Amino acid sequence: MKVTPTAIPEVLILEPKVFGDERGFFMESFNQKVFDEAVGYHVDFVQDNHSRSSRGVLRGLHYQIQQPQGKLVRCVLGGVFDVAVDVRRGSPTFGKWVGVELTEDNHRQLWIPAGFAHGFLVTSDSADFLYKTTDYYAPAHERCILWSDAAIGIQWPVPVSHPQVSAKDAAGKPLAEADLFVYGELDS
């Protein structure tokens, strides 16, 4: 597996080895030992999720203020622009974001540790998005940062002046008003 740190070193791009021929391809999408070596510590995943969305759908920027979730995300059909935002007050990269194109063809995965808000924009006609989480979904602790917060300044890849967002995501808070983590207080 090829591991590439992003501009936020804790957020990693993982590219599995893909073996293909005229019949199709094979890849090992997850191996606990290889993953733990890539991130540098043991990670337990407790939940797998699958979403399907159409072009222009923007989901996020989500995180849980208690029961924080690390996420290993990938797109298995279509393509998305995937974003992680550091919401750990006091972190050297607080308020910074990274964006990575995840597609069915590039097979990339993105590791987003706890302490980051996460979202994605669908750039293909539709997209099937899979992600593993390190803690269970806890609606009472879920928070949402506004996808268009100028203080963060995410540069979405296509004109998204009117993306399709849920009512919950449209009501997201600016980073300056959001509940945040404190850098150094989260477990790895």
Rank of each mutant, 00 (worst) to 15 (best):
V100T: 15
I13H: 08
A167W: 13
S29C: 13
T123E: 02
E104A: 15
T4Y: 14
L180K: 01
V165L: 02
V83C: 02
V43Q: 02
L180V: 06
V165C: 04
L186F: 01
V46G: 14
A178P: 00
S166R: 06
Q32P: 05
N106R: 04
I145D: 05
V34Y: 08
I152Q: 12
V85D: 03
F181I: 00
S54V: 14
V43P: 07
G90P: 08
F81P: 00
S166F: 00
D179G: 09
V98Y: 05
I152N: 10
Y41M: 11
M1S: 12
L110A: 10
A7C: 05
A38Y: 03
F94V: 08
G115S: 06
L14N: 05
V57T: 01
D135T: 06
A138H: 14
L130G: 09
F129M: 03
P157F: 06
R89P: 00
P139A: 08
Y63T: 11
Q109A: 02
V11D: 07
F35R: 05
D125R: 05
G56R: 02
S124N: 05
P9R: 12
G95P: 07
I152A: 14
E104S: 14
D44F: 04
F181C: 01
D44Q: 14
G56Q: 03
K173A: 14
H42S: 15
T103C: 11
Q69P: 07
W111E: 03
H141V: 06
T133K: 03
K173T: 06
S29G: 15
V87I: 10
G78R: 05
V100K: 00
T6E: 11
G99R: 01
V43N: 04
G99Y: 01
R88N: 02
V43K: 00
G115C: 06
P163T: 13
G56M: 09
H62Q: 10
A38T: 03
K71A: 07
G153N: 08
Q155L: 10
R55G: 09
E104V: 13
V83K: 01
